[in-house]
Design a binder for these strands. Structure first.
Lengths: 205, 205
DNA sequence: TGTACATCAGTGAACGCGCGTTCACTGATGTAC
DNA sequence: TGTACATCAGTGAACGCGCGTTCACTGATGTAC
């Protein structure tokens, strides 16, 4: 860590106080990605990163937990958006949409392994709850349901299939992130196997 | 936390110094299960739990990391043993052995969710490495290979199938542990689906 | 147009805490002569 | 049998650190009259 002299950021002009909030959240997000652990994020370190007094964080967040939650909400929105964009690119092809959604999430997770860990493996769930994450589950279930409705996947309980698929995909990401030293099979192919075997999509060429 | 007056344990008799080591490890294991996070385990808290001076931990461990590793090694051995015992109970039936091994690990994880997290999701891997964990992977792969050799599962690359299966099972455990609030499908049935769909075992009645 | 006042966007010092680790030590038990 | 000494199993005080949070404050900018 550099022990920079911290050149003190100058106050925002009147009415622009909310800009600091965004800077704090994005610093927190950046640091959480490096730390890969919500409990390791210190409010004082975030303040240092933004070059403000530690107390200034309290202008926008009630406490450390509120800051962590704001950061997680931000990440979740990014992750949902990435999936939605991928789906939009394959309008009318439910199988490609489901695959696209998964690959988008996979790419996001590989780009932000630390954030993925905090989002899925941290104790934020138990301490604070993250009900907004529900959306991600719903989107995946809906994508699977569309495959079934289109007759591309065998009819089944989409919710259960979604849970199984998410378990497998989360598990594969978790392993890659937590034990980066080992060598893992090609990610896209592994996702293909899961789609074929767990959802019942036809094998891709 | 109780702020007990800590009645100070009296020294072991001569030659029995190693007994303290075991007490320290088992206290660490207990606390790690509750904390579900290796970084949250403090050497001083462990000492308090065992009713010794903090400095006495250094009689047996070079530093905090060495203690954490010893605790993890202990857990891993328990987990392997649970799997081996389950297999031994189904000699001659490779499918039952594989299923038994998975269910044993599942039971262990549900009994010790915090330890499971530290073992699979903590940064101990990256900070210290846990090469001994290799054994667990090998055992699962071997169990799958036996199913293929016996013609119960379609011939395939056992290593890849093992990785997929482990991803799915780890993922399902991870979800249950990290988001205990949600309701998950029946665990044994979910394992059955994974065995049928990912390994290719015949569906069980 | 001038001025008192309110508001906004922050700051700085201080609090009490628990942490890992180092250091020199203590007191009981065994052992050599 | 007595005694000096070595060893074992631990202890207690102290170090410097970073943490979350509270408190009273400051200085610039706008606004009412």
């Amino acid at each position: 860590m550099e022990t920079s002299p911290s050149p003190r950021r100058r106050p925002n002009t009147r009415g622009q106080g909310e800009l600091l909030r965004e800077d704090i959240v994005s610093a927190a997000v950046r640091m959480l990605d490096e730390l890969a652990d919500d409990e390791a994020l210190s409010l004082r370190a975030v303040a240092r990163e933004v070059s403000i007094a530690a107390t200034s964080v309290y202008l926008h967040f009630a406490d450390r937990d509120a800051l962590v939650l704001a950061a997680m909400r931000h990440c979740h929105e990014e992750l949902v958006q990435a999936g939605d964009d991928a789906e939009a690119a394959h309008e009318g092809d439910p199988a490609a949409q489901l695959l696209g959604r998964l690959l988008a999430q996979l790419a996001w997770a590989e780009a932000h392994p630390g954030l993925y860990k905090v989002l899925h493996e941290s104790k934020v769930h138990r301490r604070l709850g993250m009900p907004f994450k529900e959306v991600l589950v719903q989107r995946t279930t809906a994508a699977i349901q569309r495959c079934m409705d289109a007759g591309i996947a065998p009819d089944d309980d989409a919710t259960t299939v979604a849970i199984d698929l998410r378990a497998a995909v989360n598990g594969m990401l978790s392993q890659r992130i937590n034990e980066p030293g080992l060598h893992w099979p090609h990610a896209a192919k592994q996702v293909d196997r899961f789609l074929t075997r767990l959802v019942g999509l036809p094998p891709r060429p």
